[in-house]
Design a protein around this nucleic acid. Structure first.
Lengths: 216, 216
DNA sequence: GACTGTTTGTTACCGCTAGTAACAGGTTTA
DNA sequence: TAAACCTGTTACTAGCGGTAACAAACAGTC
């Protein structure tokens, strides 16, 4: 019986095809932005729409598969920075810098991951599904960082909840500052990293009021 | 000559109409989410599409007008909290709480403002216009907060740039944490506010390492 | 070799969207 | 009365995501 070997070969062929399709989709998204159409992606891959739909279900499926690749790559880079053997402050700065370097290196990828023109779920239900349409990458980063903080930092009672809050907060800080910085590039990356680390290190609390007007 | 009085009357009539249309759009967006169609909005207002287009140009124009109303409202609430006469820490907590209370009170509005299903600018150009597709509300909040910090806090040399960075960073922190919190509501608002303020007050730097594994 | 099922691919369509052209009636100005 | 303008309509376009129906190539089975 040739069943198993034939099936095997077909499966690997399908996987290779899928990779090819994802690479074609990647090129189109990098060229046209997140609003790239399924037609354009199919054309780039040299095929027609229904095949794309057979492989990925719907547009959201394709975009999710596409996002997962980039997200995993960024996440492992961040994990490496987070695990470097050095002082806490240095590790924080290295992590911030890794993230900023990544979004600086390929802003199109970043834009796709963060603002995916979100129609991944047409969502007929209208409950309190707020954040679900937000970029899932941010959530994932926030959760990961929260876990790392909970594992390594002593925050007293209710440590775990505070660690999760901080994880999401710090990731949000990094993201918003990076997004703004990437737009009009008002300073060097080093300066941005240092300023954000200073913020996390409590310089806001320490700084004195400026003369004139009420203090902050 | 009746010219001026007639023109006046017509202008105010047009403005009233515009307000009515915006209110109808508001209802639909609150009901259907940010992907509400122009047809649905026109139907809610009791008219047909071309009138909508005559008033607002395109969908982006309508959404921008709609967003401005809510943004202005939120912004003035935040400014009030930021100007309250009390200690810096209290003011920071009040501001965080004001923001979180607002998004808690009407998550649909929040979702519209933050994830506007961004087609406000079809953007034929494909330069480094990254953040432009992000929610403009966050940028505006970040800039405002940066200004406030620069005015009131003494940060030494290069104070202004650091203040802007901090403004965007703090707003991003507030936003990401709020977005996550609104999703699965893992703790009370007070606790969230306190934890974020603690983060800004440098507790991350002060906290000790947890035993086992490398520190953070 | 003939038969059957699965995979890969196509064309041609559906319903929906944003946006527009062209035209009809009412009111103000001259 | 006639010109100008505003408000509103119907009917259309082009493009989108998504699908049904069908054609060919290939596997394994009798």
């Amino acid at each position: 019986m040739e069943t198993t070997r034939g099936a095997e070969r077909q499966r690997t062929a399908a996987e290779r095809r899928r990779r090819e399709l994802l690479e074609a989709a990647d090129r189109v998204v990098l060229r046209d932005g997140p609003q790239a159409s399924m037609n354009a992606i199919a054309a780039e891959a040299g095929i027609t729409k229904p095949i794309l739909y057979r492989h990925f279900g719907d547009k959201g499926g394709l975009y999710r598969a596409l996002a997962k690749r980039h997200t995993d790559a960024l996440l492992s880079a961040l994990r490496a920075a987070l695990d470097a053997p050095s002082e806490r402050r240095e590790r924080v700065e290295a992590t911030l810098d890794t993230y900023l370097a990544a979004i600086e290196a390929s802003p199109q990828v970043y834009r796709f991951l963060m603002h995916p023109s979100d129609d991944s779920a047409p969502s007929p239900e209208q409950g309190f599904d707020v954040g679900r349409h937000s970029a899932p990458l941010l959530r994932r980063l926030g959760e990961e960082l929260g876990k790392v903080i909970a594992e390594r930092v002593d925050l007293g009672p209710e440590s775990e909840q505070m660690a999760r809050i901080w994880g999401h907060g710090i990731v949000g800080m990094m993201h918003a500052a990076g997004d703004w910085w990437l737009g009009d590039r008002p300073c060097s990356r080093e300066q941005l990293v240092r300023s954000l680390a200073d913020l996390l290190w409590g310089r806001l609390a320490e700084a004195g009021d400026l003369p004139g007007g009420q203090g902050f």
